[in-house]
């Protein structure tokens, strides 16, 4: 019984959307703004707000965006070696540090992180050739942006290391933790 109804409805639908249908009138003042794709910041599907939600009251949290090819391997090796790391560090793996946009860093800060840093390959050793150079400039941009609104630029940082350089990963994580713990809490409205 449904079949004839669909067959009858179809020509009507076609007539509405067909090429001969009049274009909708657009007012001269109307402005067409395409919806921007806001990158969803997540670690293995977990939003960044949940990544840092387990921080105890008064404890700082630092979000680290780690390149899969180098810094993440270094972090993995540090974990396998049971090297104690500051409890403030939350790691998010990215395929390349070139994936990290200024919005990732600022959104992490806005969602509750006290500091963010990006760790990528040594300069000239990016597996995607220039990803870490892009990340360097974006972090510099975010630092300028933070400075312009009165937030300490040290809250965003970029480090480079090789995949085998576990000591450097541990040193940067501890250094970042020390830097952030010296800063006052970030005000959030």
């Amino acid at each position: 019984m449904n079949v004839p109804a669909v067959a009858e409805a179809e020509p009507t639908a076609l007539a509405v959307t067909g090429p001969k249908a009049a274009l909708p009138a657009v007012a001269a003042t109307e402005v067409r703004v395409p919806p921007a794709r806001v990158p969803e910041i997540s670690a293995s599907g977990v939003p960044v707000s949940e990544v840092i939600a387990d921080a105890a009251d008064g404890e700082r949290s630092i979000v680290a965006f780690l390149c899969r090819e180098c810094a993440y391997s270094a972090a993995d090796a540090a974990g396998n070696a049971r090297t104690p790391l500051p409890p403030t560090i939350r790691t998010i793996m990215v395929p390349c540090t070139g994936r990290v946009s200024p919005l990732h860093l600022l959104a992490a800060l806005a969602e509750g992180a006290d500091g963010v840093y990006v760790a990528g390959c040594l300069e000239g050793q990016c597996h995607y050739r220039v990803g870490n150079f892009h990340a360097l400039d974006r972090v510099a941009f975010v630092r300028s942006l933070l400075e312009s609104v009165g937030v300490e630029p040290e809250r965003a940082a970029m480090f480079t290391m090789s995949a085998a350089d576990t000591p450097r990963f541990v040193a940067t994580a501890r250094g970042m933790d020390a830097t952030i713990s010296r800063l006052p809490r970030l005000p959030r409205s």
Partner: peptide, 28 residues
């Protein structure tokens, strides 16, 4: 827009109104 999203994030942590323009790195 992307700029709007960035502004929303920045507004939450801003301590004061943004000060003047700054130089942008080459790759941004």
């Amino acid at each position: 827009t992307g700029r709007g999203a960035l502004a929303a994030a920045l507004r939450r942590i801003a301590r004061h109104e943004p000060s003047g323009p700054f130089r942008v790195p080459d790759r941004v």
